[in-house]
Design a protein around this nucleic acid. Sequence first.
DNA 1: ACCGAAGCAGAATTTTATTCCGTACGTCCG
DNA 2: CGGACGTACGGAATAAAATTCTGCTTCGGT
Lengths: 158, 158
Amino acid sequence: MKLDRIDIKILYELQKNGRITNVELAELVHLSPSPCLMRVKRLQSEGYIEGYSAQINIGKLGQTLTVFTEITLKNHRQVDFARFLAIVEKIDQVIECHLVSGGYDYLMKFVTAGIAEYQTIMERLTDMDIGIDKYFSFVVLKSPIVKAHMPLPSLFPR
Amino acid sequence: MKLDRIDIKILYELQKNGRITNVELAELVHLSPSPCLMRVKRLQSEGYIEGYSAQINIGKLGQTLTVFTEITLKNHRQVDFARFLAIVEKIDQVIECHLVSGGYDYLMKFVTAGIAEYQTIMERLTDMDIGIDKYFSFVVLKSPIVKAHMPLPSLFPR
DNA sequence: ACCGAAGCAGAATTTTATTCCGTACGTCCG
DNA sequence: CGGACGTACGGAATAAAATTCTGCTTCGGT
């Protein structure tokens, strides 16, 4: 299924405001409510929209610590990656895990209650003999930019 | 203003499904619709909820490239950081920018149309004499884990 | 130019959000 | 210890929104 300019606009607007009403969205994309809703449903059912989420100001809830971690595995067979992922998938504090090129295998993002909890998690991971060769931690001091939306206009201009 | 257990539950549920109806949310947190809605509005107006966003499967739209970049500045006065941020804030492809401890100053996340666009952006940034000493790029090959929600239950148990 | 399919607008219906009001509970002060 | 006030709740009524349905228009293919 191919997306036209209106679909891209819908995705862009829903990224900026996931709770916009269908009527307002319809006005923004210059459609009446019914075809607009039809497109949104289609975008959902075909997987272009994976879900909706509230953005929480986690800092207001209490002290938290965000850490980026570069990880290198000892071996690089498929089974080694699979075993590693199977474990980290179960850890709530793992927010992102990226397979990257350049010096390390994985770049991960943790959100924890503090340095102690992070330390505990990393000790558990290394002790488990899950195949971690070495890792390096970047503790986040401040996050001046955190966007919830992708640059759709840059990626798909017109 | 202090949050009780119900507020935390509301935040958690809205993270998982930002478009849940107020009636369903009320049932999940064992309240009737009206006080539930009142709490949601309060969480919004007091900044605990910063907004709502649709999660887009960007990979289905076309080819994109995600890159994490470690950046070190030449100088570390307040004015140096401020100048750097003022520039990168304007770049649509910059999704995140974190001030980190450990080897580098900033860890940034870019989403671009491809390696060429990324290259162009980095050339522009380095040519600008914006104070970048050196940088190192991690090209993302795959992102097995990308969560839209923070681990609220781990951070605020009970 | 005709036929068929697809997408649209507008109205009707159903569902949901929102407001309003009366009640209960907890707290503070007399 | 008791009363009054403030806060939060539940339920009903109203307003708004989503959703469905119908008929029309446009576009593509023959």
